[in-house]
Amino acid sequence: PIHFDLQHVRKMGADQLSVHGMRAMLDMKRHLSATLLSAPPEHDFYIFSTRMRRPVLCETPYDLQIANNGQQITGKLLDCATQQNCFNSKLAPARGLELAAGDHEHALTVPEVMALGQPFPGQASEATQAWSFFDALLFQLLVKSPQTLASLTTALPELQAATLIEVFAQIPVVQTHHETHFSARLFNPARLFESEDRLYYTIQPMLIIGDRSSGFVLRAVIEARTQRHPLLVTSVTLKTWPLANN
């Protein structure tokens, strides 16, 4: 609701809708990737991380600053009027990707993945955006998973919700940190899948800390691979407002 319902936002004491965290990061990811891919990537794995410090508001101009020190590429999103840093990101080489063993692994066929890529607000087949698409796809799968909802309702049994979206309508949630550890194979999307391959993904148990008076911090992790190669791990940290205020 904080992204689409202005009346809901005003009841919370704010004046403007905020941009969804995944959408706010999309341009940052694209520009960091373009800087990295100005030369052939030298490493097999990379890690992208973002710390979100302030909401990114709709109808508000921002300045995106990109820097490359030869070891990592960094970005800052600054409010043009106040020069406040809303979020900062970095893209850097990383260790090899080792996926944790999961109890329940799910699979999508390549045509299913391609169909899910149709509404992506970018070019999922471009080298600079393919990994960002898969990151967004995993986020979507995480949010829609009954497993994720079950973790929350176990911690907060009084919630009356059939989907995570209904939870978000009852408890204001902000995304504070996002991390994606991914294979450089995602920079070459045309050769990502082999014949009859699938995208396999596993959701790890959610970590929930905090209490009703101070709010909760939720950390959710989802992993993906092809039949032969690990692809990426997406970790999302969310913070709820104190429940006493709702």
Rank of each mutant, 00 (worst) to 15 (best):
His104Arg: 06
Glu112Gly: 03
Gly75Ser: 15
Pro93Phe: 13
Lys90Phe: 05
Thr74Gln: 09
Met114Lys: 11
Cys58Met: 13
Met114Tyr: 06
Pro40Tyr: 12
Cys86Asp: 09
Ala39Lys: 12
Ala92Phe: 04
Leu91Cys: 07
Leu99Ser: 10
Gln84Pro: 00
Val113Phe: 01
Tyr62Lys: 05
Gln84Met: 02
His43Ile: 02
Asn68Ala: 08
Leu108Phe: 08
Gln71His: 11
Lys76Thr: 03
Thr74Lys: 06
Leu77Trp: 00
Glu59Met: 08
Gln118Ala: 03
Ala101Phe: 06
Ala39Met: 08
Met114Ala: 13
Val110Gln: 08
Pro93Val: 09
Asn88Thr: 09
Gln118Cys: 02
Gly117Met: 14
Thr74Tyr: 01
Phe120Tyr: 15
Gly102Val: 07
Ala92Gln: 14
Leu116Ala: 14
Val110Thr: 12
Val110Met: 03
Cys80Arg: 14
Leu91His: 04
Ala94Gln: 11
Arg54Cys: 01
Ala81Asn: 13
Arg54Asn: 02
Met52Glu: 12
Leu77Thr: 06
Tyr46Trp: 14
Met52Val: 13
Lys90Met: 08
Pro61Gly: 04
Pro93Met: 07
Phe48Trp: 11
Ser49Phe: 01
Pro41Ile: 08
Glu42Cys: 07
Asn68Gly: 06
Gly75Ile: 00
Val113Gly: 02
Asp103Glu: 15
Arg53Leu: 15
Leu57Arg: 12
His43Val: 01
Ala94His: 14
Leu91Thr: 10
Glu98Cys: 06
Asp103Ser: 12
Val113Glu: 04
Ala92Pro: 00
His106Met: 07
Phe87Ala: 09
Arg95Ser: 15
Val56Arg: 04
Gly70Cys: 06
Ala81Val: 10
Gly75Pro: 01
Tyr62Asp: 12
Gly117Leu: 03
Asp63Cys: 10
Glu105Ala: 10
Lys76Asn: 10
Ala94Leu: 04
Asn68Pro: 01
Pro41Tyr: 11
Gly117Asp: 07
Phe48Cys: 09
Gln118Trp: 03
Gly96Val: 12
Gly96Ile: 12
Gly70Ile: 10
His104Glu: 13
Pro111Met: 11
Arg53Ser: 15
Leu108Met: 12
Pro40Lys: 10
Met114Thr: 10
Ala107Ile: 09
Arg95Gln: 15
Glu59Ser: 13
Glu105Asn: 05
Asn68Asp: 15
Leu108Asn: 00
Gly96Asn: 15
Glu98Tyr: 07
Tyr62Trp: 11
Asp44His: 14
Ser89His: 05
Pro119Tyr: 05
Gln65Phe: 01
Pro119Lys: 01
Phe87Asn: 01
Leu116Lys: 03
Asp79Leu: 00
Asp63Phe: 05
Gln72Ala: 13
Asn69Gly: 04
Gln72Lys: 14
Arg51Gly: 09
Ala39Thr: 13
Leu64Cys: 08
Leu64Phe: 02
Thr109Gln: 05
Leu78Asn: 10
Ile47Val: 14
Ser89Cys: 14
Gly96Tyr: 04
Arg51Val: 10
